[in-house]
Amino acid sequence: MVDFFERLGALTLSVLARLGLATLFFGAVFARMAQGAKRGALLVREIHFAGVRSLAIILVSGLFVGMVLAVQGYEVLQRFGSADALGSLVALSLVRELGPVVAALLFAGRAGSAVTAEIGLMRATEQLAAMDMMAVDPISRVIVPRFMAALVSLPILAVIFSSAGVIGAYLVGVELIGIDAGAFWSQMRASVDFRLDVLNGLFKALVFGVAVGLISVFEGYHAAPTAEGVSSATTRTVVISSLSVLTLDFILTVLMFRGLN
């Protein structure tokens, strides 16, 4: 029994220590954002690494998610004779929820884990220490550009994901199943509000970008400098990012859409 409390206490303390470490780290990252923003070339490089290289998986996933939504949505809607509403069903699901959320989950798996592994290896091979000894701040030089790349890339990826999804739904719904194209688009446009739906969705993606970006760089920067340490940091990035994205999504959805429709 005492053993149990001892373990619980130790766990609590280690979690608190980790949170404290994370808070200090986030403070340091934010304090150096302005400096980091001046290094355009570095940022471009990291957007290429995180954003451009995630494009393929985002496009393909978006297309398939849209196609599946169309098939399943049609199945349900046609029972009530409302197959024409397919466009609005698909577009609203994508723009409000699936676009930002699925893009963020894919981004955490594709780019977040890679960033963690990269920074973790830089730490394990003393590259960060070497930089620090060369009087170059590793947080401004290595961490901030990677964090900002996530911040910039994820909203772009989310809107591309949603667009690909709408196109996928169009291909299945209109071209394959044979819903009237006019009804598909007009229902969609009647129900999707640019500001309330599209921009809110983008804002969600931005918040997810901050979360996934911070978690990835934090886990990498504080990874144990061993092969095992880097691999478990990579896993933690994906797990913690995914849970954070889903939790944040719930909170944001309640805040944004409560009272609307």
Binding site: T125, Q127, A129
Partner: peptide, 17 residues
């Protein structure tokens, strides 16, 4: 400022890969 006047060779070089 002091570190700019120091050089350090790390154990395995620590080159930027």
């Amino acid at each position: 400022a002091l570190r700019r006047r120091m050089g350090m060779l790390f154990q395995f070089g620590a080159l930027f890969t």
